[in-house]
């Protein structure tokens, strides 16, 4: 029942951003993704949460094939996505699709909706009545067929994002990467878009890699949540366990930071950890545990040794010395 659809093992993506000095030049690299491992199962929604600069979009772009990983492996249903140097086969391009954050930039302003939806159909569903397919696609995402000949600038932000979702759906994919699909939208439209995504997931048995910085959204959408910090995953858990029993201090800090309205809601928060400082530059990552500069529980050990992921049971894994070496605390 729980077959793996996407498996990342020690996935790394470094960007060379410059060089130091003029003698003895060394590359300055940004460790955007620094050795992450995760598994996604068929039909689930894995929420990948992190602050800006944590490398979550890099994971998305690497999975979809815009970037080649520096090292590590990424497998789709057991098939390695980055075979030596070769182009990604069409079957994988069909199976994995993406919805970008900003629909203003992801839809070509000079092409109408029909032309936008036509491309993936042309490539991946040849030989069928294309007009019929487009009408049906629009129908599936609840847009009137009259939108076919509209241009993106005639649509609202939410409608544009729905067109982007329809485009991803056009190839009949199994895995859709959602790169902050609602963060550019109004709150009222966000809810509508999320509901559409959930309905489509059920209807077409889709798996979502849902990338966001909105932790509260994950409670309702994700089956499992992974927290990223400076290119590494610090905690992965089933959504329920994650919100009830966060183990990593960073997760606790994020959960404490969710804005709430009432005192009752505030009381529901598991553990209060005040948010301090900002995410350090990924060019200059702190030694040992990268979170120690902001961690209220930092110990000597933390600056020396980077903790490893430990499984605490029920699919709840965490990467923190407080859990793995409680004796040292």
């Amino acid at each position: 029942m729980t077959t793996e659809i996407l498996t990342a093992t020690a996935l790394k993506k470094y960007f060379v951003v410059g060089r130091t000095g003029w003698r003895d030049r060394q590359a300055v690299t940004v460790k955007a993704v620094d050795g992450i491992s995760f598994t996604m199962y068929e039909g689930e929604t894995l929420g990948l949460v992190g602050e800006s600069g944590s490398g979550k979009s890099t994971v998305a772009y690497t999975t979809i094939g815009m970037y080649r990983p520096t090292s590590g492996s990424l497998k789709f249903r057991g098939q390695e996505l980055f075979q030596n140097g070769g182009q990604r086969p069409m079957s994988l391009r069909k199976a994995i699709q993406i919805v970008f954050q900003d629909p203003g930039s992801s839809l070509n302003p000079r092409r109408n909706i029909k032309q936008i939806l036509e491309l993936p159909l042309q490539i991946h569903q040849p030989g069928k009545n294309r007009l019929e397919q487009i009408v049906h696609l629009l129908e599936v995402v609840d847009l009137p067929p009259e939108y076919m000949y509209k241009y993106p600038h005639m649509l609202s932000g939410g409608e544009k994002q729905i067109v982007a979702i329809a485009r991803a759906l056009a190839t009949n994919p199994s895995l859709i990467i959602l790169d902050e699909p609602t963060s550019a939208l109004d709150v009222s439209v966000q809810a509508k878009t999320i509901n559409l995504l959930l309905r489509l997931q059920k209807e077409f048995n889709l798996s979502y890699l849902f990338i966001t910085h909105d932790l509260s959204l994950m409670r309702n959408v994700a089956s499992r949540v992974a927290i990223m910090y400076l290119g590494k995953i610090c905690e992965v858990a089933e959504t329920a366990g994650f919100f009830q029993n966060p183990l990593h201090p960073y997760t606790q800090m994020l959960l404490s930071s969710i804005p709430v309205v009432s005192v009752e809601e505030e009381a529901l928060k598991p553990k209060k950890v005040l948010s301090t400082g900002e995410i350090p530059s990924p060019v200059n990552i702190p030694s040992g545990c990268s979170f120690r500069t902001r961690c209220p529980f930092a110990m000597d050990l933390c600056s020396k040794i980077d903790p490893v992921m430990v499984d605490t049971g029920k699919g709840h894994s965490v990467r923190c010395h407080l859990v793995s070496q409680p004796a040292a605390a």
Binding site: Y61, I64, G65, M66, M90, R93, K94, Q97, I98, F100, D102, S105, S106, L107, N108, P109, R110, R111, Q115, L119, P120, I123, H124, A164, R167, T171
Partner: peptide
């Protein structure tokens, strides 16, 4: 622009990207 990336990752030909995605802009 992301619309070019979207066309690339879905497997559009270079000719399509040059003449249908970029040229009109």
């Amino acid at each position: 622009e992301f619309f070019v990336s979207a066309a690339e990752v879905t497997g559009a030909s270079t000719a399509h990207i040059l003449f249908r995605e970029i040229l009109p802009n």
